[in-house]
Write a protein that binds this DNA or RNA. Sequence first.
DNA 1: CTGAAAGCGCTTACAG
DNA 2: CTGAAAGCGCTTACAG
Lengths: 345, 345
Amino acid sequence: MRSDGKSPATIKDVARLAGVSRSTVSNVIRGSSTVADDLRERVMAVIAETNYRPDARARALRERTTGMIALITADTGNPFYASLGLGVEEAATLGEPLMIVANSHCDPAAELALCDSLISRRVDGVIVGDLSSNAGFPSILADNGIPVVLAGCGVSTDPRIGAVDTDDEQAMQLIIDHLFALGHRTVCFAGPVDQRAAADRRRLAARTAAASRGIVLQEDRPDGATALICHNDLIAIDNLDALERAGWLVPDDVAVVGFDDTPLAAHRRISLTSVRCDAVALGRIAATQIFTAIAERRHATERQLLECELVVRGTTGPTRPGRPSLGAGWNPVHVLDTALERTPH
Amino acid sequence: MRSDGKSPATIKDVARLAGVSRSTVSNVIRGSSTVADDLRERVMAVIAETNYRPDARARALRERTTGMIALITADTGNPFYASLGLGVEEAATLGEPLMIVANSHCDPAAELALCDSLISRRVDGVIVGDLSSNAGFPSILADNGIPVVLAGCGVSTDPRIGAVDTDDEQAMQLIIDHLFALGHRTVCFAGPVDQRAAADRRRLAARTAAASRGIVLQEDRPDGATALICHNDLIAIDNLDALERAGWLVPDDVAVVGFDDTPLAAHRRISLTSVRCDAVALGRIAATQIFTAIAERRHATERQLLECELVVRGTTGPTRPGRPSLGAGWNPVHVLDTALERTPH
DNA sequence: CTGAAAGCGCTTACAG
DNA sequence: CTGAAAGCGCTTACAG
């Protein structure tokens, strides 16, 4: 297949051509130990002319490390995960480990299959962007000596698993307080179509916050609500669309709140009230945890919550007495896994 | 690090525990050759109780294959790439190869570094979602015996490189014809901030199509244009925002056209006229090419263009005499690499 | 049908 | 400072 019909040069080839031993070539490559200058030069020259690149597979086998980490995502179409990945990338500059980005779709079977594959491949660490409710795979990874940290999807009961997440309780309290001040007394929480841990968590936080204000919280049912609190911006933006197509006015009839403050929330035509959390920082922190855990050959066990900020925009406003509230005629849209499979309107 | 303090079971452990040779264990795992039922059962039992998982690193070294392919992306925040990845995933069910998704940001230095890493790791194949203009790394990959196909970013001059892309010439003709019919005679093409091959290609196609209608095409400058043809939806949506913030009316003063027909284009509040191309199909076709190339130990050399369809929505309308056209007061926004780093308005 | 042996391409003590 | 040897965990002919 190679144009020249030969297979890639190995360390053996280089050693032979340079007239040294394989150990010496290895030492030159790794910059370790002191190699005599003339030998080093000879080896370097041969490496350059043969275009030799050490085989990472062999190295991985020998060094018990692959230089690869995995980022497990729920929904590649959500810019939130893109930011998360960017944060990981930022933190990764040092050892430049390669990232496997895998979309589990929060499907338990897919998660398990992925977990198996990741263990077989002996990835150095795993960052979980979201997972199905009560998913067991992080513990299986830990059982196999792989450090894992949850990023943006709660805190595991397994002490061997690290976490960095938004402070959902605080965030939901901000949302509820904002809606309460605007006069809303019945609100609806709209989660994703699948069962994912992050949504469970936010749902619960919404419940607590609502209770603190005496607000009635409907979950995934609209009955009488004048505001829609959505699990994330993607869901919020989709519901905004669905509401307006069904004839409701936002924010006059019903308020809509998102979560993540993705770039689009700030778009003039969308102007979505949302919770800003620094997804890039989330990724960076998770990655840092993982990298130090790998370096110290231990699990990642730190847990950290990031404060959020409410960004008020055009989709929330005061309730207007006499306006219709949501009712039987309309149901919140539970965005499909990747928002990409929706049929275009 | 492992909770039980032991390292993962190896084939040697299994062989010992089952009282057979390593070859037999290997045969059982791979289902190959006929192993006596009783031995098979014993081995299976030991595998189950030791939780043995073959080490993919060793296997890769031995089998000269890694079961990993890479998808190189320009901008993870663009849902277009998410769809592309979904298509690859769809086609991958058979051998369930793991995907390395890497964001080159279309930066030549990053591309080269990534290329190096991919060669070292001996990935089985590479799908390129976009690349910098005249990037040489696909040929370097090919030099190293790695099949590569460009998906959605043109056709390489290197015959060893496969391609599947939108038919930009046809698509641009659709756009130009549509705008011409609406009365537009001067239009502006807005590309991404970086130099990427896909944009070069579209820019050229716009030039040809515009010439066919006697339309004046301004590139990245607004002067006198009444319509903005954007390289992709992300750029279009950002420009829509920028235009309206600057006081222009869309579509009354200026028309905006996107490319990709991402889910958001269909949103009621955005309603972006765009070119629909099946990104999932693009990914699926590219992946199929790669997989057959890998299986047949050759380069992927097919080239294929997919027809596109123009979806007319609310951002394009007839020119209105007397309305202001774009001028010195405003410049198109060239969206940053990942659209995620924009400061929120 | 089963196992001993060689080898994939590296790195790492260990002699010299 | 340099090289011979062992070994990482697999698979694949090849004997028996």
